[in-house]
Amino acid sequence: MRLAISRRAAPQLPIPELCELARSRGLDGVELLAADLDAAAAADAAAGFIAGIEVDSGAAASAEATVRRAAAFGAPVVVRHAALGGADPGALARLYEREGAELLLLHGSTLDEAAAVVTALTGTASPALGAAWEVRPGTDDLSLAPALLLATTGMLRLIRLHGGGPELGDDQAAGTGGLVAAIAVSGFPGVIVQTPSAATRAGEWQQWLRGSARAGCGTAHEKQLAKRRTELDIRTVEPKDRMPTILGAYQALSPGQTLRVTFDHDPSCMYYTLQATEAEGSFRFERGLDGPTVWSADVTRVR
């Protein structure tokens, strides 16, 4: 499985820069929009890094220019199945096979939509055609995920996930853990594309891509500041920078001083880390708030 990001996260950035930022975030690709295909500069910089091409109509999906560019990128065209209208999947399959390209029919999180895609794919039995799933954890019924994944086994090649990136802390993201586990257990071999849940959030995403989201938290300067604090709201720090920030603040405590840490997850991992890395009896750990959205803990340096 690979993890990618949608062009919608940074619609204004030049494509080469977007690809570079995505790489620096450890991501495996970018899903472009049909309009990006016209950008001449896109081709070279993005070659091999395009996870998909989102198009919005059957006409666009069956345009020879689109299919040829997709083949050149080595990326599938992704179109909502319902947007194909009366287009014959068999004819599309022949076009995509001839050009050496791939077309994915996108369905939402209902069994009816998935079944319609499965029927279309089974009817053509073409390797050039596959399925894609667009899921919005904030509004979709995630309990259907295992059934949807089962119905599309062997066909599903792309999942477009609304959320991720800087939106992980949102209430809307609740339940994503179970969804990701269901995807993992299904053996899904394709790519997950994170995309902003709304166009208005692109600014946050662009900041996140640059690694400077939430006002420089996790930078060396920020870690230095954290060392002088006895209260630390770790929710404002990116997950990857959290434990080093906490340990730095703890180690800066004088004996008898207490550090209060506020979390958006259970602080057990902090307790077990201190227990494993600090001398026995050197700290005292007391739990405060206990979820389900905010947790806190007081850790006192005893000696």
């Binding site: 853990g177 179970g178 993992a184 997950i192 997850h265 389900p292």
Partner: peptide, 17 residues
């Protein structure tokens, strides 16, 4: 083996997942 990518799992759900 199955691959569990927790980069897209909210902090509260990472370790439980």
């Amino acid at each position: 083996p199955i691959e569990l990518d927790v980069r897209i799992v909210p902090p509260a759900e990472k370790h439980p997942t």
